[in-house]
Simulated assay, not measured.
Amino acid sequence: MISAGYCRLMSRYNTWQNASLVTAADELTNEERWKDRGAFFQSIAATLNHLYWADALILERLKGNGRPEEAIKHSLTSPSNWADFKALRLHRNKEIEEWAARLCDDDLGGMIVWYPGDGSTRIEKPKALCAMQLFNHQTHHRGQVHAMLTAAGAKPEPTDLQMLEY
């Protein structure tokens, strides 16, 4: 389905695109970052916080943690401080790249099991599918942030994968 090389490429793409969005969002005021822009999570900041949380959750599942919601709490409002968010985002990007760097193709085989926050339902999915979801989910929401930033007058970089420098 996918390879460890795919995960390494997409982790680099994740880091590049997050840096692009953060740099563009630096041009805005805090109020502009939190302004409701009609997106699913309303604002640029809330959508970026959702991505930060979801990346942690999916990555923990991929590492074998079947109950990551017990330690990772979803919040659209935290971190609320932009400098704190930027530092945490850099750390999460590095964490994803380090995970991908350690992967072998065989590591993407098999199934992973987890229980959502209420713990009532056991979910089992192919590990490769969950790795793809990590990167697909990022791309989906970063596209929303890119559109909100552009509408606000900021200028994020292009998102085309072939623009990623080797």
Rank of each mutant, 00 (worst) to 15 (best):
M132Q: 11
R89A: 08
K86D: 08
P116G: 03
A151I: 02
Y115R: 10
E97D: 07
S80A: 07
C104F: 14
E165T: 11
A71H: 12
A54W: 12
K155H: 12
D84P: 15
R8T: 01
T15Q: 11
A4I: 06
K155P: 08
K94S: 12
L149K: 05
D36K: 09
A151L: 13
S43E: 03
R33W: 02
G64H: 06
A154K: 00
L48N: 05
R122T: 01
I123C: 07
I112G: 00
R12Q: 02
M148I: 02
P158Y: 10
R67A: 01
R122Y: 10
K125N: 03
G117P: 14
G38H: 09
S43R: 02
R67C: 01
T15P: 06
L57C: 02
L48G: 04
L108W: 15
L103E: 00
L21H: 02
N14H: 13
Y115H: 07
K127G: 00
I96S: 03
A83S: 13
S20V: 02
M148L: 05
R102V: 09
E124P: 04
S43H: 05
A128F: 15
R8Q: 14
M1K: 09
H137S: 04
T29H: 12
Q42K: 13
T121Q: 09
D26I: 10
L161K: 14
T121S: 09
R122V: 03
R102Y: 07
L149D: 00
M132K: 08
A152W: 13
A46I: 05
K127E: 01
L76Y: 15
D160N: 09
R8Y: 12
F135E: 05
E98N: 14
T150E: 11
A71P: 04
Q144H: 14
Q17V: 05
A19K: 08
L103D: 06
S80V: 09
A56L: 13
P116L: 00
M148T: 11
D160G: 09
Q133G: 04
E60A: 10
L149R: 03
Y13K: 00
S120E: 07
N93I: 01
Q133R: 08
A25I: 02
L9I: 13
M111W: 12
K127P: 04
A71E: 12
E70N: 11
H50G: 03
A100Y: 12
I58C: 05
A131D: 04
E69W: 01
R92M: 14
G143E: 11
T23Y: 08
S75M: 12
G109C: 14
D84L: 14
A87L: 11
L51C: 08
E31R: 09
N30P: 14
D84C: 05
I44R: 06
G119C: 03
G153R: 06
G64W: 13
T29A: 10
T15V: 10
H140Q: 02
A154P: 14
I123F: 08
G153I: 06
T29Y: 14
I2Y: 07
T47C: 00
T77S: 11
L134F: 13
D84E: 15
R12K: 12
